[in-house]
Design a protein around this nucleic acid. Sequence first.
DNA 1: TTGCAACCCTAGAAGTTCTAGGTATAGTTA
DNA 2: TAACTATACCTAGAACTTCTAGGGTTGCAA
Lengths: 112, 112
Amino acid sequence: MGLSKDFVAASAEPLILSILAQGDSYGYAIINTVRELSDGEMEWADGMLYPILHRLEKRELIESYWGKAETGRRRKYYRLCDAGREHLAVLRENWRKLERMLDRIERGREGQ
Amino acid sequence: MGLSKDFVAASAEPLILSILAQGDSYGYAIINTVRELSDGEMEWADGMLYPILHRLEKRELIESYWGKAETGRRRKYYRLCDAGREHLAVLRENWRKLERMLDRIERGREGQ
DNA sequence: TTGCAACCCTAGAAGTTCTAGGTATAGTTA
DNA sequence: TAACTATACCTAGAACTTCTAGGGTTGCAA
């Protein structure tokens, strides 16, 4: 069994933002990057990625521009906006909060 | 601004399972527990929690039984099933995987 | 000229979520 | 005994989201 559908869905947004934080990229390459990073465990369908990219763009977390590959083929590159960078930071901070809550539960309160 | 809606939704399932892993509880008490654990940042509406509880029960991750409060008022308690305990472990393992992937991205690959 | 890999797109079926409304009971106060 | 508060639970279905399944183009190699 691979990774659960829910998990794949939940991790898409942070992964994309995080990849773009390292430099502009485009759909097809992002899919390959994710496959490699997950050691092949996460295989995104392209038809799943593009709608996500479009949504992120609509939310103005990322923005796109057309470019060309060395081969001459066109590509749509995405760049992380400032709002996207902030959003990514918020996401990671939220996880840390959740981790803290889960730890608190397990250790039977006594805070922070 | 409080916590984002998405985050509240995403964290509900693990929080509930985690709370029940420490001992049986019931809807109203879970809401209070979460409020305390989050230092008041997370305030669940009861109408949001009960459907989640019902879904978890349908998935056989938790099971319920009626009990009585000391005051005599009836309560529906929930207990974590074995499948729920496993599911919680999988969830946490998945986060760890995601964290690892995000770290890899930031440190520019060189694995594990 | 066929075939494949690299690239992008979207309608809408199928699903999920949780708001907004409801009920009931025990105890307290006036 | 009426009114109010806190405790305790429930659900229909509006509102939204997701992503499958299908389609399209271009460059290069055989």
